[in-house]
């Protein structure tokens, strides 16, 4: 139950991007198309799960004084391996994500989870935390990229990351004359981010209020007894 709660927190309430405001740099930069978002999201999930598991497995061995350098070495190694795999097997993705793959190393979500969670919990819990947080990141970049791609190009489309020429689906929802190219620029990224983050905060406040009301009602019932 507790584990499930941890997992769900990462997805919505403590969503790393819209809830904790972590890893914004890459989020704002790569969310111009669905393809980029999924590629980046999957790479982050992969690194996050593996780094959480490795760090959790060696947490009792690592001396406290040098834990951060050790974590960085582990994370950097994983990211570099992922980068090489992407370059080899999904070159189109590599050229569109560019520098943001190596920058996963300094993505605060990963080091943050290593320090805050994996270094204090077991391997299985850490892996689950990685899945939850990683899916949270994927959900965030995906929702941003859907909005941005739709408004800036009017088309929702996705190609096979392993074979650029193969289009999986392509759907024109807005005629070309009515697209807003601003949404492909950083300005559009900030606006989309702000709206989604505000939406999540509003949702969280709504839930809080409901819980508080339920508590108050329970209290008054008790008092009446």
């Amino acid at each position: 139950m507790n584990r499930m709660q941890n997992f769900k927190n990462g997805l919505i309430k403590d969503n790393p991007v819209f809830g904790l405001y972590l890893g914004l740099c890459s989020t704002l930069a790569i969310t111009t198309s669905i393809n980029n978002a999924i590629g980046m999201g999957v790479a982050v999930i992969f690194v996050l799960i593996l780094s959480n598991m490795i760090i959790s497995a060696i947490r009792k061995l690592v001396p406290d004084e040098i834990r951060i350098p050790v974590y960085i070495v582990i994370i950097a190694t994983l990211v570099k391996i992922i980068q090489m795999l992407i370059q080899a097997y999904a070159p189109a993705l590599d050229s569109s994500l560019g520098v943001f793959i190596p920058l996963i190393v300094v993505n605060c979500i990963i080091l943050g989870r290593a320090e805050a969670f994996a270094s204090k919990n077991g391997v299985l819990d850490s892996a689950l935390d990685g899945v939850g947080m990683g899916l949270g990141y994927l959900l965030a970049v995906l929702s941003m990229s859907v909005i941005r791609q739709l408004l800036s190009t009017g088309v929702l489309s996705m190609t096979n990351p392993f074979n650029e020429a193969q289009v999986l689906f392509s759907l024109r929802l807005i005629p070309e004359d009515f697209t807003i190219s601003m949404f492909s620029s950083p300005l559009g990224a900030f606006m989309t981010f702000a709206c989604l983050a505000a939406g999540l905060t509003a949702y969280k406040l709504h839930v809080q209020k409901k819980e508080a009301a339920a508590k108050a009602a329970a209290n008054s019932q008790e008092a009446a007894k």
Binding site: K80, I81, M84, L85, A88, P91
Partner: peptide, 10 residues
């Protein structure tokens, strides 16, 4: 080892 595996493909 990762480099040895991927370098020729890249």
């Amino acid at each position: 080892s990762a480099n040895a595996l991927t370098a020729p493909v890249i």
